[in-house]
Design a protein around this nucleic acid. Sequence first.
DNA 1: TTAGTAGTGAAAACGGTTTTCATTTGCTGC
DNA 2: GCAGCAAATGAAAACCGTTTTCACTACTAA
Lengths: 152, 152
Amino acid sequence: MSVQGSHGHSHGKGPQSLRLTKGAKKVLEVLERTDELSSAQDIHSALRNEEDSPPGLTTVYRSLESLVQLGLVQSVDFGDGERRYEMVKPGEHHHHLVCEKCRNSVHLDQCLVQQLEESIQAKYKFEVRGHILEIFGLCEQCQQAMATAGKK
Amino acid sequence: MSVQGSHGHSHGKGPQSLRLTKGAKKVLEVLERTDELSSAQDIHSALRNEEDSPPGLTTVYRSLESLVQLGLVQSVDFGDGERRYEMVKPGEHHHHLVCEKCRNSVHLDQCLVQQLEESIQAKYKFEVRGHILEIFGLCEQCQQAMATAGKK
DNA sequence: TTAGTAGTGAAAACGGTTTTCATTTGCTGC
DNA sequence: GCAGCAAATGAAAACCGTTTTCACTACTAA
Ligand SMILES: [Mn+2]
Ligand SMILES: [Mn+2]
Ligand SMILES: [Zn+2]
Ligand SMILES: [Zn+2]
């Protein structure tokens, strides 16, 4: 659970439908065929380039909301104000190593926080329900590139 | 990280001066006297309530930027679109357990990621430079409150 | 004083996201 | 087929934290 609702300021409103609407299916299709993280707008413009009557941006957002609730998609927060999405194994989640230079990211295979939940629960009596964790730095290639060129 | 002297030239754009300007000092004062995380606007309105000529919101943002660069303040991202700030021991940082109900947060005393850096570096050849980590859930009080009342 | 530089703030711009609301779709039972 | 209804949709507007712009003020050095 890469937690936490959308862009803050909206307490109102209830969830979305938890069905795969027509729009949601199209959104899912886009996510199905990329390993990369995609923003809502990425998805929207991908659809505009291939569908004859693509869903509007609003529908993309709504679809993503349901897909996340269904556990088919996770939303990832790099703290840059743009939320990104990707398919996950149903109900699972993972975190990333994000290269600050080339912006590629490694999908970690296990959650580093889950293993800590127990001890957090024990030590702080805190019931963990979700978390944000993303790690930034330089991938191997970029380290080398910067070593040969002048540091940056 | 470019440092800079009292009167420098380096401009470029982005970063701010790394001096404690008048405005930055006021911002720091506000942060000094609370354990809570404060948003830029929190700080701004605190200053408006006590200063006769308080710094503008723009200056608050700029001050926070320098204070963060100086390592005196950390910015914390809960993924809700509003960045929060708090004083830290110079150069250090920490993470939080954030109660989703009462919104209070526990300041963790050690960083869970730093201890993993070495193994990440070894396994992925990834040079860790930073990370986001915040944990959400229910604090002890809120767990009890919800146990007595109807679940939520 | 006189430059030149750094700091400031009001207002406007920005940009991702959410709301609004009128319209369209997809059903249900006739 | 045809009402009648609820869910889904999308264009446009609103939202809101943050950043940019730009004119102005306060310092500082000579
Ligand atoms: Mn991933
Ligand atoms: Mn803290
Ligand atoms: Zn995790
Ligand atoms: Zn840390």
